[in-house]
Amino acid sequence: MKIARVLSAIGLATALVGTAAQAKEWKTVRIGMDATYAPFESVNEKGEIVGFEVDYAKALCAKMKLTCTFQNQDWDGVIPALLASKFDVIFSSMNETPARAQKVAFSDVYYATAPVIMGPVANKSDDVSPAALKGKAVGSQSSTTFANYIQKTYPDSTYKGYPGADEPNLDLASGRLDYVVTDILVAETFIEKSGNGCCRIITEIKRTPDIFGPGVGAAFRPDDTDLRDMFNKAIKELDDDGTYKKIEAGYFKMDIRGK
């Protein structure tokens, strides 16, 4: 008797799981980001997420008359959390790679900057050939395009992956790592903040499309193409009315729009 009841409940649940998703009217949108990536997004001493992408996303939401909330989410879990509806959009400097595009829907690119290789100041050599880095410890945030680049380019180096984007920088400063691959602006921000002249940018890396993709976009659940289209429209409008330039000027000296 009891078993029958349990079974029918399970049957009901599976029947429901099969039902297709319904269209919805977007009024509030929850934005997820991994806030370890200053100046794009980081946590300040009040516990708030601040940075370029926060301001930009806020401007987009204002344009679309949406109420937006921000959530911090570790990088490893950022796509699973999106797919599990913990939030509706990823705004987290996510490069549009083929592997990711199979799981999520990307908006148009809203910035593209160069990756760099950073090393300690004491390292005077600019040679970053695989031979020169053989046996050296090279680090980055794990599950990133940087990680893929290191593992592909430097198979004979020791790769170290970190949950956050700011942790490899600390280990470079302490000397656990010999090289870090990260974004140029993140590297500059870290070098400026650390102030003790620990590290320097050795070289820029060319953005090869197979690893880095065309640039950074917002990511949506594949079903939510309506939401993505709204964002694409707003991205274009902010380009046209000069808002993008204004927000960009508040953070960077260079142009990151990269069209």
């Binding site: 490893d76 699973p80 592997a99 680090g139 794990s142 599950s143 170290k160 992956g161 280990d171």
Partner: peptide
């Protein structure tokens, strides 16, 4: 950063 069982699981999941 140690690629132990949990570590490689995370790496594989990310791929």
């Amino acid at each position: 950063t140690l690629p132990d069982l949990m570590g490689v699981t995370r790496i594989i999941f990310a791929r």
